[in-house]
Amino acid sequence: MKRFWHTAFISMVALFLASCAMPEAPTRTALVYGISIYETAYAEGDPISNNLRYTDDDAKSMAAMLQDSGWTVKAGIADTQTLADNLDATRLAIETDIAALKGTGGVVLFYYSGHGTYTNYGESQIIPFGAIETYEDRITKRELYTMFEAAGLSNVVMILDSCYSGGFVDAGATLDAIPPVFGSYDPTGPVAAEGDIDYTWFTNALDDSINGYFSYEHDSGHIVLSAAGAGELSWESASIAYGAGHGIFTYFLLQSETDPSADVDGDGLITSGEAFAYCAGRINETWNADNFSYYIDGTFADYLPHLSGTPREYALWENK
């Protein structure tokens, strides 16, 4: 009996010690896209055009932060009124960049800041440069997933700062309790469900969770962190409170690098889960508190990020 206890204790200690070591960094490649100019006849943020103002700045800042944390970054920015200078942010460029990663292994981070929309069937899309009027050049969730799968990439994290980007998030074997349209002021919106967090009490989730367990078939395994729900707009602001020119979501992503409170477990790394929690909390405390009753384009301006229901989470960048 004594030997049994001894062996059990030693096994537990060995397991614990093995869990403490951080492996050497894998190959990490980031594909970063920011599109502020969709119509080259107009300047950034021109209200009579579809151009945005800060999405290129989001991408440039994300690229710098990722590089700083050891990622190899390939960026595609569309921010000039010269068409030829924006071609590294088209659908073709995105497809080519992803396909070029075939066989590289490691971890791939895909970041996108720009317009998003949804199809007549309610499928969310991102809109690369050149696709504002060419619908077939927009990219749906299924198409984006297929691009990564065709390249044989299984360690993929996608971060999308665009409207309706929640449609790219796969809940997998879980239930996402954040509704596609968040906020008690949202009776309209393109997706039927709206309201506050679905489950007030932990056990309220039991019925739905049991149904989810028995009906679950497969999950892509891709981790998607979206700025907004499937029925929500994502916002940018010139306010100094949000970095004087960033998407709100991206601003808080960037802040997670330096705010110690973002590193919940104190290991010096921001994971996809910690990034989500930090952004969701900060957006709700700041932007949502100020704009929950601001109504525009058929919806209210409050929103929350969403995160895939995969069992995995990835270390994304350092907390300094």
């Binding site: 932990f202 989730a205 039991l206 739905d208 969770s209 367990y213 889960g273």
Partner: peptide, 24 residues
């Protein structure tokens, strides 16, 4: 059965479990 929620998220899930054990 267990009803669980991932850390730092609003993702809930359920699963079955087995637990064999010995005690003295």
């Amino acid at each position: 059965g267990m009803l669980a929620r991932y850390d730092l998220s609003f993702s809930y899930f359920f699963f079955l479990y087995l637990e064999p054990g010995l005690s003295v």
